[in-house]
Design a protein around this nucleic acid. Structure first.
Length: 571
RNA sequence: CGGGAUGUAGCUCAGCUUGGUAGAGCACUAGCAUGGGGUGCUAGGGGUCGCAGGUUCAAUUCCUGUCAUCCCGACCA
């Protein structure tokens, strides 16, 4: 492609609205333009890159035995009403009405549509298992779109769905998808990790997320420093056998703690370690209020709380609700003699405390020498806190460290949630009606694009891995008024294209400095500069990633590029 | 949805406090020179100052409302 024939609007300055590197660079290098909050146009360079990523995905999905199809973005409300998600999905589902006032949703995901397709035409166990996928635009009315392509309201996603007659078959496909995903992200050059995850609103059990490691990631990964254990912090199990200290339990005592509300204030005021303080929180679980206890130096994990309570939704009660429920402001609540009829759930670490401190349910007072079991009873002890860095790894090997991650893929074993809700059934060998056992597998394609940009850049711009760069070679005639340079560049342009290189030729009548700066910003793997030595048939080859420079004759260019791209393979 | 901030040219911003209907740099157009790391000079084009009310002889500037965008948090396959 000649640069004069396409649209690559580079910017010298950083757009004020872009905070993170990938967003800034994708804007500056002319890949994307924002149309509305969380809504972007993919300009030609981004479009080419997306196609490269999609091609890798298609190859790997086909390898995993999945067939591509394309479903509608516009979906009738009836399907979502069948699954129940018309009511449960909330405001994130984009809804619309047609001219006859019929209701529709713009697809946020496609379990409903795929289930409706398959249930109509796959009625026999003989047709199963079956795996189908699509690459398509999804719509989610995010409360807060951010970070450019990383969290948009409209984005490109690959979503796959599988249908099975038994769990083993589901496991098999799930594992194939795991392998396919690993291959895909590896081929994209990404530094990533598969982690145990929470299944969230989609439902289902076993589920893993593929996380690109990055400081700007919105998720925290807890991983072991000496095994391959890795989990989303939401999920990471705390597996510590707490033991009660061999310490005599003193008599319970109420002490005055004026204006001491936070754990830090209380522990400082009473001169005890935060780990001796019981943190009491009130959660609203569906419609019930529950008191949750964790140690002062721990954080309650609402997802674990949700699971322990078997609730559909759990959120921290606000200060006023708490006051209403316990008759006492947030800073002084506690489990002792609460007198209120409230369910209490405590972390295992709390059970092992002796002579602890907790709120006295009276503004400005706390109890000291509190002993769980003696001074208060709980409904159950469970693992309900977030794991911390330095905790032992749940698999027993090593200690936990944290990293930040960008979720680019997620694989689920759905089970029969959707098939049962939507009557997706087949006849088994015995002629008996059975619901499909389902799996679903997603990749955020546009998010992957920006994760790559986030991971691969330097002070001069983007540095695309060779597999997914929009073009392979940036061919630059330094002076377009110099006929020998222009002639050689044209010659090489044809030559390289004949050799199946994807070439971008900067034929603009720009100054050399402008071309070089733009070239670095765009970040194609190899730059071929046709300059002063054009008359001798000599050009300069520069590798974007390493900065290494070669001067070669026209004849040696193709073999040299062959070597360079071989070296870059996998990057 | 809570908290914070910002809307002036394609981009980055100044002007507004103390009202008199707009500026800079970059980008863009033309010309001359230049031609290996964002070139120099000259001459140009481009803005209902987010939108709507209000105050005023007069509003980019003051007041009210509204919309949009970004950041933090909550939320989220």
């Amino acid at each position: 492609m000649r640069q004069s024939m396409t649209l690559i609007p580079t910017l010298r300055e950083v757009p004020a609205d872009a905070e993170i590197k990938s967003h800034q660079l994708l804007l500056r290098a002319g890949f994307i333009r924002q149309i509305a909050s969380g809504v972007y146009s993919y300009l030609p360079l981004a479009n080419k890159t997306l196609h490269k990523i999609e091609q890798i995905i298609r190859e790997e999905m086909d390898n995993a035995g999945a067939a591509e199809l394309l479903m509608p973005a516009m979906q009738p409300a009836e399907l979502w009403q069948e699954s129940g998600r018309w009511y449960s999905y909330g405001d994130e589902l984009m809804r619309m009405r047609d001219r006859h006032d019929r209701e529709f949703a713009l697809g946020a995901t496609h379990e409903e549509v795929i289930t409706s397709i398959v249930r109509d035409d796959v009625k026999s166990y003989k047709r199963l298992p079956l795996a189908l996928y699509q690459i398509q635009t999804k719509f989610r009315d995010e409360k807060r779109p951010r970070f450019g392509l990383l969290r948009g309201r409209e984005f490109i996603m690959k979503d796959a769905y599988s249908f099975h007659t038994n769990k083993e078959s589901l496991d098999e496909t799930y594992n194939k998808m795991y392998t396919a995903y690993t291959n895909i992200f590896r081929r994209c050059g990404l530094d990533f990790r598969a982690v145990l995850a929470d299944s969230g609103a989609i439902g289902g059990k076993d589920t893993q997320e593929f996380m690109v490691l990055s400081d700007i990631g919105e998720d925290t990964i807890a991983y072991s420093d000496s095994s391959d254990y890795a989990a989303n912090i939401e999920m990471a199990e705390v597996n510590i056998p707490y033991e009660k200290p061999a310490e005599e339990a003193h008599a319970l005592e109420k002490v005055e703690t004026p204006e001491q509300k936070t754990i830090g204030e209380v522990s400082g005021f009473l001169d005890v370690d935060a780990s001796k303080v019981i943190k009491s929180l009130v959660f609203k679980a569906d419609d019930e209020y529950v008191m949750v206890l964790v140690r002062g130096d721990h954080e309650a994990n609402d997802i674990k709380v949700k699971k322990v309570l078997g609730a559909a939704s759990v959120e921290l009660a606000d200060q006023e609700e708490t006051k209403k429920v316990l008759g006492c402001p947030v800073g002084s609540i506690g489990p002792v003699q609460s007198g209120q009829d409230i369910k209490i759930v405590a972390d295992y670490a709390v059970e092992a405390l002796v002579n602890a401190v907790c709120g006295a349910n009276e503004d400005g007072f706390h109890y000291i020498n509190v002993s769980p079991g003696r001074d208060f009873q709980v409904d159950s002890y469970a693992d309900i806190r977030f794991i911390r860095e330095g905790d032992p790894s749940p698999d027993g090997n090593g200690t936990i460290k944290f990293a930040r991650g960008i979720e680019v893929g997620h694989i689920f074993k759905l089970g029969t949630t959707y098939s049962e809700a939507m009557d997706g059934t087949y006849l088994d060998e015995n002629g008996k009606t059975q619901p499909y056992i389902m799996g679903c597998y997603g990749i955020g394609v546009s998010r992957t694009l920006s994760a790559i940009a986030e991971q691969f850049n330097d002070e001069n711009g983007l540095v695309w891995p060779s597999n997914i760069a929009p073009y392979d070679v940036h061919l630059i005639p330094v002076n377009t008024k110099d006929s020998s340079q222009l002639a050689l560049a044209e010659d090489l342009y044809s030559l390289l294209k004949r050799d199946r290189y994807d070439v971008l030729m900067d034929d603009r009548a720009e100054r050399p400095g402008v071309k070089f700066k733009d070239s670095d910003l765009i970040g194609l793997p190899v730059r071929v500069t046709v300059g002063k030595k054009a008359e001798e048939g000599i050009v300069e080859v520069k590798v974007r990633k390493t900065g290494e420079v070669h001067e070669v004759s026209k004849e040696r260019l193709v073999p040299l590029l062959g070597d360079i791209f071989q070296q870059l393979a996998g990057f």
